[in-house]
Design a binder for these strands. Structure first.
Length: 801
DNA sequence: AATGTGAAGGTTTTT
DNA sequence: CCTTCACATT
């Protein structure tokens, strides 16, 4: 039956011939699967996005589905955008109104269409995580609870976590008094959000799910409408998202409706978000519950050379719970994976920098070189080394555009124009810039609002006196803006707001206000380009009307407006540009990458590297406790996730991969003595090329160079009092040399920082030496076995090298 | 209302 | 060690 489809496609639509050309057999099989539930195990670099977009194009061009009958969901805006771009390159089709987007973006669209049924105000606003945190803080304060006991961040996490498990306050089990109270906060928070007409990210999902679950006619409508549902990065779905899928495309189609194609693409080996609720188990559950007949594995890799893939395969083979998959390539083995040891994080950074410079000189673009690390704190050393050497670099993961304080202020004014009851926004700007509304006045206002369970905006009348007058003036400012900007273009509206609010004037007087003003100007630009190129309705228009495609499968109900339950007749309304822009700002916080522009080295955590690829990749800080991170060592699942993270890191590299680790590292103001990561031992020897002698980096090549920095400071016999030892760094750059603790060569011939071997625990690093003679003891960091105190008279420690 | 001080805490993060 | 944030001071 698949062949039938594709044959017809090739005959009827010449375009589809080229569409399917160049697919390998597995990709071809996946792309041309029939309308049945299917699971695609797509390895890193196996052409996953290509398969997804080609399948959509194939389904459309063969007339198996109309543009309106298709639902494709991703996690990130980037992935959604990419899909749309590639799709419109493949097909001459208006991609605009199609239901292709992020989970949250599509939920937003759904709720805008069915706001009434969902119990929301038409102009509901979306809280980002920052807004949510401040909303939770307000609730905790209003309930008179102690922020020490109920840490706002944790409470926020609890609420989001509950929602992502599909639980309302009543569903959460009150196992102890603390939890009981948390549930109360959750309840109060919900009430507050409802009153203010705002929803957080998780609420977008949960509301949508609940409305679909509870409203039979709506459910049937959408189930009949979406003939094909595609899910990207399925391994990252949480419980709620899987339930969401099941309610849009249940395993058992409703009576009278044709089968729904559910196409789930994922890679269990790249599941690195369990810590925030992703359930890898959803893949196995999906396979079982949807009776997937065969799982298609995409194992041919088009990105990396053999040695890199061999390393990735060998590493991930150490994980027990896998669906099972091995990457292969036809590109040949390529270069060996280079691996090196360094005496300190500082030396590691210097080496990295030299190596990257050499690569650049040999013709590799800086932007094709990635410096990866496990945690953000590690970027500091790298940055300072790069900064001092004047090498351009770019760090990913900072503040995003729409999260900047000045931008959020401007947005708050805009939101109040749309919805003055949004107390979060109200509080943010009621006295910013300062207009004589102090803490006392705001307290009075909040009390008044609480009594009448009204918004702050509504309660202004209840506050008398000077403060009250100022409040009234603020309300008048908002009202005035709303009146004055009615009918204006988005650009004009923002211009008015920036001027009338006094924001620009305020920043003009600030010392460091210039950059902030630039950002506000950038906001105007963002709005402008949103209106013109995106078409402001992109996220907002919610016409559940299908374009009737000539190729729609006969007999399948084509969702027309008439299918929509009566209460939603008003769904045809289009959001105002302003409302759409605010939604856009909340749902798409903007690039989290520093200013693009010049060719620069790419610095980022392994997490944020997921989905990217580079010619050359450095994975740094491969030390026990760091990578794998110590906090994840307690349970096996944690360690497996760390290993998957390493797997993701390795598979980012196309041509050349470097691994590095350091004997000492400055962390939390202390020098830590680390053992090399167990992941290094899990790589195949044959694929590696050691740049330093395998154990201690002492002895040859440039390792000796670095050793000097190390041993001069901690020099043999140079017994200095506790504390720092001044050492002359090999590189006379501003960052200080590694600070070394007291190094002592006592009668046992051991010193701090030395790598030793123990019969039972294996290799370890000496962290502390105490006592002398028969009393001598050493604390040794054995990595996975932890740090042990050993009596030197008893324990046999052999120095390595 | 702006600025200063002290304590706490310091995986990973998109929407 | 370094950042962040709540609180106190002028």
């Amino acid at each position: 039956m698949h062949d039938q489809h594709s044959d017809r496609a090739l005959v009827d639509l010449p375009g589809t011939g080229t569409l399917l050309r160049n697919l390998n057999p597995e990709q071809y099989a996946a792309v041309t699967l029939g309308p049945e539930p299917s699971l695609i195990l797509a390895g890193a670099g196996s052409g996953k996005t290509r398969v997804l977009t080609t399948r959509i194009a194939w389904l459309l061009s063969t007339g198996q589905v109309s543009p309106g009958g298709l639902l494709a969901v991703t996690f990130t805006n980037k992935a959604a955008k990419e899909m749309l771009t590639r799709l419109s390159a493949m097909l001459p089709i208006a991609v605009r109104g199609m239901w292709i987007g992020t989970f949250h973006g599509l939920c937003n669209r759904f709720l805008r269409a069915h706001w009434k049924l969902a119990g929301l105000p038409q102009s509901f606003q979306i809280l980002d995580s920052g807004d949510q945190l401040s909303a939770v803080k307000r609730v905790i304060k209003a309930m008179g609870l102690d922020e020490q006991r109920f840490v706002p961040k944790q409470v926020t996490w609890f609420i989001a976590g509950s929602k992502e498990d599909g639980q309302r306050p009543k569903d959460v089990e009150a196992r102890d008094p603390q939890t009981r109270k948390m549930i109360e906060i959750y309840e109060a928070y919900e009430a507050q959000c409802q009153r203010e007409g705002v929803v957080d990210f998780a609420e977008l999902m949960l509301r949508t799910y609940e409305l679909m679950r509870d409203n039979a006619s709506l459910r049937e409508h959408y189930q009949r409408r979406f003939r094909h549902v595609l899910v990207d990065e399925f391994q990252d779905t949480n419980r709620l998202q899987y339930r969401w899928l099941k309610v849009f495309a249940p395993p058992q189609a409703p009576d009278g409706a044709g089968p729904q194609g559910v196409f789930a693409v994922g890679d269990d080996d790249q599941s690195i978000y369990a810590f925030r609720g992703a359930q890898v188990g959803n893949m196995a559950d999906f396979e079982r519950e949807y009776h997937v007949r065969q799982v298609i594995k995409l194992e041919r890799n088009y990105r990396s050379f053999g040695n890199i893939l061999d390393s990735a395969n060998a590493l991930i083979a150490h994980n027990a719970h896998r669906l099972g998959k091995n990457l292969r390539t036809e590109a040949g083995p390529g270069e060996l994976v280079r691996i090196g040891e360094h005496p300190s994080d500082y030396a590691e950074a210097q080496w990295l920098l030299d190596e990257a410079q050499a690569l650049h000189r040999s013709g590799v673009a800086r932007s094709e070189i990635a410096l990866l690390y496990r945690s953000n704190a590690q970027s500091r050393v790298l940055e300072s080394a790069l900064f001092n050497a004047g090498i351009p670099y770019r760090v990913y993961g900072g503040l995003r555009f729409f999260e900047r304080a000045e931008v959020k202020h401007a947005l708050a004014y805009l939101r109040l124009i749309e919805n003055p009851h949004d107390d979060t926004s109200y509080l943010r700007v009621v006295n910013f810039p300062a207009r004589g509304i102090g803490a006392r006045t705001i307290e009075l206002l909040q009390d008044a609002a609480k009594v009448g369970t009204q918004s702050l905006y509504q309660s202004v009348g209840a506050v008398a006196g000077k403060g009250g007058n100022n409040l009234a003036a603020f309300n008048a400012l908002i009202d005035g803006l709303r009146e004055r900007t009615r009918g204006l273009t988005l650009r004009e509206i923002i211009g008015q707001v920036l001027a009338a609010s006094g924001l620009v004037d305020f920043y003009r007087t600030e010392k460091e206000g210039a950059e902030r003003i630039e950002n506000l100007e950038e906001l105007v630009n963002a709005a402008e380009s949103f209106v013109t190129q995106e078409g402001f309705g992109k996220d907002a228009v919610a016409l559940p009307v299908d374009e009737t495609s000539p190729g729609a499968i006969a007999g399948s109900p084509v969702g027309a407006a008439a299918d929509i339950p009566a209460p939603d007749a008003e769904t045809g309304e289009i959001q105002s540009p302003l409302a759409a822009f605010l939604t856009h700002a909340a749902l798409e916080a903007g690039d989290n990458q520093a200013q693009a522009g010049q060719d620069a080295l790419q610095l980022m955590t392994v997490h944020s590297a997921k989905g990217l690829e580079f010619d050359c990749v450095f994975i740094t800080g491969l030390e026990e406790g760091l990578f794998p991170h110590e906090n994840s060592l307690s349970d096996g699942d944690g360690l497996e996730e760390e290993r998957r993270l390493m797997y993701v890191a390795i598979t980012r590299a196309r041509q050349r991969l470097y691994l590095s680790f350091s004997q000492t590292r400055m962390l939390h103001g202390q020098t830590r003595y680390n053992v090399k990561s167990r992941f290094i031992q899990e790589l195949p020897e044959g694929a590696l090329k050691w740049l330093t002698p395998k154990h201690q980096g002492f002895g040859s090549g440039y390792a000796r160079e670095y050793q000097s920095a190390w041993s001069r400071g901690s020099g043999l016999g140079s017994v200095v009092g506790m504390g720092r030892v001044e050492g002359r760094p090999t590189y006379a750059a501003p960052p200080p040399p590694p600070m070394l603790q007291k190094a002592r060569e006592a009668e046992h011939g051991l010193r701090i920082g030395q790598t030793v071997f123990h019969n039972k625990f294996g290799e370890g690093v000496i962290v502390t030496l105490e006592g002398s003679g028969s009393d001598a003891r050493a604390q040794v960091n054995f990595g996975r076995h932890g740090a042990k105190w050993l009596a030197l008279g008893i324990a046999k420690l052999t120095p390595v090298d």
